[in-house]
Computed example of a mutant assay.
Amino acid sequence: MTARKNTTPKTLSRGHHVLAGVVVTGAVVIAGIGFAGSYAAVRDLALDKG
């Protein structure tokens, strides 16, 4: 027989929630910067071609 493990989900502390929010916000900001840069580059190429 094997011992049964505790399967109770762990809860995140306030600090973990704040850290997760900071990480998600940073990822969204970086994605936005990448999208804006890519859009600007494609726009410039399109304007050069007419």
Score class of each variant (00 low, 15 high):
G15S: 05
K5H: 09
T8L: 07
F35K: 03
S38Q: 03
V18K: 09
K5R: 14
V23D: 02
T11D: 10
N6Y: 01
A31T: 12
R4H: 13
A31H: 01
V18F: 06
I30Y: 09
R14A: 12
T7M: 15
A20G: 05
I33F: 10
G34V: 11
V18M: 09
L19M: 07
I30G: 02
A20W: 13
L19Y: 06
A31E: 04
T7W: 08
H17N: 08
G34Y: 03
R4M: 14
N6R: 10
H17D: 07
R4K: 15
K10W: 04
A27R: 00
A27W: 06
T25Y: 05
A27D: 04
H17E: 06
V23C: 07
A31G: 07
V18L: 14
A31D: 02
S38D: 00
G37I: 02
G15C: 01
G37T: 07
G34C: 14
I33W: 01
I30R: 05
H17M: 07
G37P: 03
K5L: 13
A3Y: 10
V28E: 04
T2D: 13
N6P: 01
G37W: 02
A31S: 11
T25A: 15
G32V: 06
V28W: 05
F35M: 11
K5C: 08
